[in-house]
Amino acid sequence: MPDLDAQTRLELEAAAFRRLQKHLMEDRTDVQNIDLMNMAGFCRNCLSRWYQEAANARGIDMDKAKGREAFYGMPYAQWVAEHQTDASPTQQAAFNDSHKDDSET
């Protein structure tokens, strides 16, 4: 890794996050959250929760709905209505299989 000062590293990480957010919110709205969860183990909702948790850690009062709206760029219900489809039985089975250990902890 190049020798970067803390501010430059922070700015590069923020730029990478914004690019990922744009990719998921504008370029690949066709990719469903369940597909992201099945393939990568995280989805847009996870990213919005991580955003919310980071805000809360800095003393910013942000609930789940506000975190989602900040990440999605719109109310979550609007995103769902415009982009989300029902999970197929195959998608749901893959999700259940890949997350079966989650319920055991």
Rank of each mutant, 00 (worst) to 15 (best):
M1D: 07
M1V: 06
P2C: 03
D3Q: 10
L4M: 13
L4V: 09
D5S: 12
D5T: 11
A6V: 08
L12Y: 11
L12N: 09
E13N: 14
A14H: 14
A14R: 15
A15N: 15
F17T: 11
R18C: 09
R19C: 05
Q21M: 11
Q21T: 07
M25W: 01
M25L: 08
E26V: 14
D27L: 05
R28M: 09
R28K: 12
D30L: 06
N33R: 12
N33E: 11
I34T: 09
I34S: 04
D35L: 04
D35F: 02
A40Q: 06
F42C: 05
R44F: 03
N45C: 04
C46M: 03
S48R: 00
R49T: 08
Y51S: 06
A55M: 08
A55K: 06
A57T: 08
D61F: 04
M62K: 01
M62P: 00
D63Y: 05
D63W: 04
A65Q: 03
K66G: 02
K66A: 13
G67S: 02
F71R: 00
F71D: 00
G73E: 11
G73W: 09
Q78V: 09
W79Y: 13
W79I: 02
V80E: 13
A81N: 12
E82K: 05
T85V: 11
T85C: 07
D86K: 12
A87V: 13
S88G: 08
S88V: 04
T90G: 09
Q92D: 15
F95V: 03
F95A: 09
N96K: 13
S98T: 10
E104W: 13
